[in-house]
Design a protein around this nucleic acid. Structure first.
Length: 607
DNA sequence: CCCCCCCC
């Protein structure tokens, strides 16, 4: 009992900041906080108890490992007590030492009474016990409390050296530094001291609401992380000043709710710089870490929704060659490189790097890659793609990386893995998620095309207008205008040719067990389907209508695997589902049955 | 106030 700092909870709530107070954790509760795990603790000092304590997320692993458990006794080596709305206090434990494990203690010590901050100190202390800590410090002044201002942590001016080395607790003007974790939109006076962990380049936008430029960066301190964005004037003012890895004092920015769709940082809020923002470099030595990852193990990827932004770590088991792709929307050429990542969950996933990062990547030594902020895609099951806002670290000097490398070098490299990026088992075609049309109709989004496979039967062929005369220039494919003089004009090339080439654009009505759907099939895939060339088919169309139709009808009531690119398109207010076959194959009965069996087993498991 | 991030 005497091991606990009796009465210290009241002292802390009263505004004092005693060093290394010792308390008992009575219980822990995981609270909903975005996607991030966050723990609220019921702590006791033997005299009082309170559930105002939260564990800084970088200590979550101590819960997972069982180091922190009910009844354990901890020394709070670093902590902050902040006032949130309505004078409510929140204690965030930044660093702690377990002095006795829960098992060693085994029970609640003493008979602590819940500390009620609404009652005065004297009301709570019917029988003032021998206090190790006197609640002598003045409370926060009413004006500070009204603005959600922070309690002076050190009224006697005795700096509490944190256990982990130096940490900045004073702003240049002598005020107190607030932890990022404590920032909320309800609070307008704060200063943080944080390291820039990721700085994006300047980007411009133009939409119906206007246009402008922006850049964003990420900030980290010992309590947490937050994203910050500068717009327009603030871009000019701060872009050159803000440097990655440097530490700054920041005050006077506005806070708003983070959109989790685009922000995977461990914070429910993000900040925008504004006219009142002040940023000053911090040159003091600090214990602020350089990067905070919230790793998702690879075996969790299948359960997460598409487009989730997340952090992963894995060993680069295999590297593929550079390749070039053309952007659908702009026709821009892109360089990419795929590689496979593995981790101890015996999963393998494909990661795509882009541009310079793809070109300069060297995977020959099978490095560990820690990637912050990658996008999960559904392609071929699951794969992940690096974004411009992502941060890729190769062989980072962090515990997880050393652990993974150790695992990999001691058998992990030859361990059997489940490849998340080759659904269906085979490489090339056949891999990819199979869906029914009804499922596809539900999952297809308006803006982004989606890829999946269907197994379906051709039930109708649209023979009319299935062929057109196209520009003979390689890669143009634009329809030409017949000049009726043996010449053909391409508007796109602004040229007139004495020849053209036939191209196929065929509408097929495909039915599966759930629905039927008209899809479009172009040139290469159509030639494959019809087992002919477009020029032969075009000639036939002109000379022998009967044979032409025979070829078209030859695919009727045949079963194929189609890989489709689909999206919802809107024409003057009316939306329609649109699918294009980007690939097709005959149905291999064995493979098809195997897939059905797998699906049946899965259904049986769920039932 | 952005929120694009590509390709199979």
């Amino acid at each position: 009992m005497e091991t606990l700092s009796s009465g210290v909870i009241g002292v802390i709530i009263g505004g004092t900041h005693p060093e290394n107070p010792v308390v008992q954790i009575l219980s822990m509760k995981r609270i909903p906080s975005g996607s991030q795990e966050r723990w609220r603790l019921l702590i006791s000092d033997g005299k009082w108890s309170s559930s105002f304590a939260m564990l800084a997320t970088q200590l979550n692993n101590k819960v997972a490992s069982g180091e922190i458990s009910n009844n354990c006794i901890i020394s709070m080596n670093r902590y902050v007590c902040n006032t949130v709305q309505e004078n409510k206090k929140v204690l965030i434990i930044l660093d702690l030492k377990v002095t006795k494990t829960g098992a060693e203690v085994g029970c609640k010590l003493g008979s602590p009474v819940n500390y009620d901050p609404k009652k005065s100190a004297s009301e709570q202390q019917e029988q003032p016990a021998q206090q190790q800590y006197k609640a002598a410090a003045p409370k926060a002044s009413p004006s500070m409390a009204a603005t959600g201002g922070n309690v002076q942590r050190n009224p006697l001016g005795q700096h509490n050296a944190p256990a982990n080395g130096p940490s900045v607790t004073r702003t240049p003007s002598g005020g107190s530094v607030n932890p990022i974790e404590s920032l909320t939109p309800y609070q307008n006076r704060w200063t943080i001291c944080a390291r820039v962990t990721n700085k994006a380049s300047i980007r411009t936008w133009s939409n119906s609401r206007g246009e402008g430029k922006l850049f964003s960066f990420e900030l980290l301190d010992e309590s947490g992380e937050i994203r910050a964005t500068a717009f327009n004037d603030e871009v000019d003012k701060y872009y050159d000043m803000i440097e990655a890895d440097k530490v700054y004092f920041i005050t006077g920015a506005s806070l708003k709710t983070a959109n989790k769709q685009y922000n995977n940082l461990n914070n429910d809020y993000e900040m925008s710089l504004n006219r009142t923002t002040e940023i000053t470099p911090c040159h003091e030595a600090t214990a602020i870490p350089t990067m905070q990852f919230n790793f998702v193990s690879l075996d969790q990827l299948e359960a997460l929704p598409k487009d989730t932004i997340l952090d992963v770590i894995g060993v680069c088991k295999e590297v593929f060659d550079l390749s070039h792709v053309t952007m659908r929307s702009t026709g821009k050429e892109l360089t990419k490189r795929d590689l496979s990542l593995v981790d101890t969950t015996a999963r393998e996933v494909r990661l795509t790097l882009w541009g310079t990062q793809a070109e300069t990547f060297d995977g020959s030594q099978q490095p560990v890659l820690a990637v912050k902020g990658v996008k999960l895609s559904e392609f071929n099951g699951r794969s992940i793609s690096v974004l411009s806002s992502s941060c890729v670290q190769i062989n980072p000097d962090i515990r997880e990386a050393h652990m993974l490398k150790g695992w990999f070098d001691n058998g992990g490299n030859v361990a059997e893995t489940i490849n998340l990026s080759s659904r269906g088992g085979s490489q090339g075609f056949g891999s990819g998620i199979y869906k029914l049309f009804v499922e596809a109709q539900q999952s297809t989004g308006a803006d982004k095309p989606e890829y999946f496979c269907v197994n379906g039967t051709v039930v109708m062929v649209r023979k009319d207008n299935s062929m057109y005369t196209a520009c003979p220039k390689e890669g143009c494919n634009k329809k030409v205008v017949d000049q009726s003089n043996g010449m053909y004009r391409c508007e796109k090339c602004d040229q007139t040719y004495d020849t053209f080439q036939w191209r196929i654009m065929l509408g097929l009505c495909v039915a599966d067990i759930s629905d039927s759907q008209w899809i479009t099939i172009f040139q290469d895939q159509a030639e494959q389907l019809l087992n002919t060339t477009s020029n032969e088919l075009g000639a036939l169309k002109e000379t022998n209508k009967e044979d032409f139709e025979k070829i078209m009808d030859s695919v009727l009531f045949k079963n194929y695997n189609f890989k489709l690119r689909c999206k919802i398109e809107t024409y003057n207010g009316e939306s329609r589902w649109k699918g294009t076959a980007v690939n097709l194959s005959d149905v291999e009965p064995k493979e098809h049955s195997q897939r059905l069996i797998t699906e049946i087993n899965k259904l049986a498991e769920e039932a």
